[in-house]
Amino acid sequence: MSSYPARKTFTSIRLVNFLEKAIVYAILLAGTLVILTPFWWMVTTSLKTPAEVFTFPPTFLPHKIIWKNYVDIFQKAPFLLYFRNTIYVVLLDMIGTLLSASLVGFAFARLRWRGRDLLFLITLATMMLPGAVILIPRYLIFKELHWLDSFRPLWVPSFFGYAFFIFLMRQFYTTIPFDLDDAALIDGCSHFGVWWRILLPLTRPAMAACAIFTFNATWNDFLGPIIYLSSQDKLTLALGLLNFRGPHTTDWHYLMASSVVAMMPVILLYFFAQKYFIQGVVFTGVKG
């Protein structure tokens, strides 16, 4: 690595640091604006009267803030039931995904076994065939298992692993030095022990990413529930949202209000899951 002369005066370093921070903030805040503008519209729409929703020109602030929209949606649709159903599916799915992705990713990244590389390619391949053409065969399988109109088609597969998450975990495992495994193995640890004691704690940021992704994807999925569920009392949140679209018209104020409510849990989860990113990984024992 080439070395650079680092002979700057104390004040110039401070100035550079200050300028640098200012630029970073400017960029990030500009991006924030781009991201939040549409959300602003979404939130204000959820607080408008139906008459005001699409008035022209659009109003930046509602003339009158209608908090009642948020009360109404819980009366118009059994939202608590939708929440319960969704949480049931999402939690099981998330646990299954984390467990299987972590284990299978480990096997792909850090263990040598015959057929591994071929199986890894097959794993990648499963993501490449468009889902539309395997919808019916898959439905048939769940029909044979007598799982239709139950939540099982939506979460049981997660315990067997999803290719995307396995691939993700595998890539993260490869960023961790092998010395750790070797040292533990020499100390008499089993491979399972290496996964459990050493690598699982080290892949926490990746696991947090997996958790957020799978939570988000399952939370918002509506094609799966539409195909596999039938009864009204089994609807999930994403389907419940669709219910605010009438046959010919859409209750935008309700749709937006319920969208805001529906995305809250995901945002909260992400907000709190962040400490896993910040805590970071300290590779004790890498040196030397």
């Binding site: 019916i136 048939l140 539409i226 195909i227 039938s230 009864s231 009204q232 679209r245």
Partner: peptide, 23 residues
């Protein structure tokens, strides 16, 4: 009556899938 109701646009996809699977 066993009531099967689904909101929206993918209803036809669901019914087609059911026809394709014989139920």
């Amino acid at each position: 009556i066993n009531r099967i109701s689904m909101p929206g646009a993918e209803f036809a996809t669901k019914i087609l899938t059911m026809y394709g699977s014989g139920n």
